[in-house]
Design a binder for these strands. Structure first.
Lengths: 149, 149
DNA sequence: ATGCATGCAAACTCTTTGCAAACGC
DNA sequence: GCGTTTGCAAAGAGTTTGCATGCAT
């Protein structure tokens, strides 16, 4: 997870958008770069606030639109909300478990081999065309278990 | 899934609330019964609208509060939103796959033995106290795959 | 040059909140 | 009777929308 890796990932996301026929605007590039730099599971608002520092005219709509496009392309995951009412995104599109703390709203990833191929099997059994996954367990993180409130 | 089963399930939910120290109000009983009768994965609003016919003074807050209590007790599942912006609930709390159609917003359940014990293993590996799950694949249902829009 | 994308701000919808009245236990 | 729960309505927050302007290709 060095800076080269971050740049590669940003390029992957941007290339994905381009190959889908979307234009590579400075805003979209910035969003892809911001996503690749993130080590957490940001919300649209969090990305917007971060990006606004270097791009004051950026609008929320652009952030939401770009995230939606990336999700539909399967390049990032839409994790739903984490107890804070806002949708969180996962930069890693590979199937894995997301552990959400409903108290501090932090999310950690967990590699889980049992999930490999599960989406394909589910698709075959149900007839659904599966476009994305949301494998989330929610509860309390180790830290929040030991706090009174 | 006959009417006896529905009544049993409603009683289970109500008993769960009672054992948690919550009072068995007519509103809560109605919500439990409405949940047990459902064969789909309703939103809070959908339940509210259904219940309002027989209980005109019921407030949205009560529906939201009761659903939140049932989720925290692990009696029902909070599936997050299904592409329509509203949170859907699953009456069945056992671990299984939920297939969400992002076009018609229908949700189907899929039994999946690979999920058994997964929550416990994830909890052990991560230190999280796991209180609930949200195992969702989203995509297009067989019907919506064959519609132009 | 063409038409997709952006910015802006208002609108929309789901959900939550506060407080007085009602009622389960 | 006590303390929780409800109802009501307004507030709150995340997200979406519409349209004129701007820019990637």
């Amino acid at each position: 997870m060095n800076s080269t890796h971050v740049e590669d990932r940003a390029r992957q996301l941007a290339q994905g958008l381009k190959q889908a026929g979307l234009r590579l605007t400075p805003q979209r590039l910035s969003i892809c770069r911001a996503l690749a730099e993130r080590k957490d599971h940001p919300t649209a608002q969090a990305l917007y606030e971060t990006l606004q520092k270097s791009m004051p005219t950026l609008s929320q709509a652009t952030v939401y639109n770009t995230l939606e496009a990336l999700v539909e392309l399967g390049l990032i995951q839409d994790l739903g909300e984490a107890g804070d009412g806002a949708t969180h995104y996962d930069i890693d599109p590979r199937p894995h478990i997301n552990l959400v703390c409903t108290r501090c709203h932090r999310i950690v990833d967990l590699k889980e081999p049992a999930l490999d191929g599960l989406a394909q099997r589910a698709a075959a059994r149900s007839g659904y065309q599966v476009l994305g996954a949301r494998i989330v367990y929610y509860g309390l993180c180790p830290e929040c278990q030991h706090t009174t409130q």
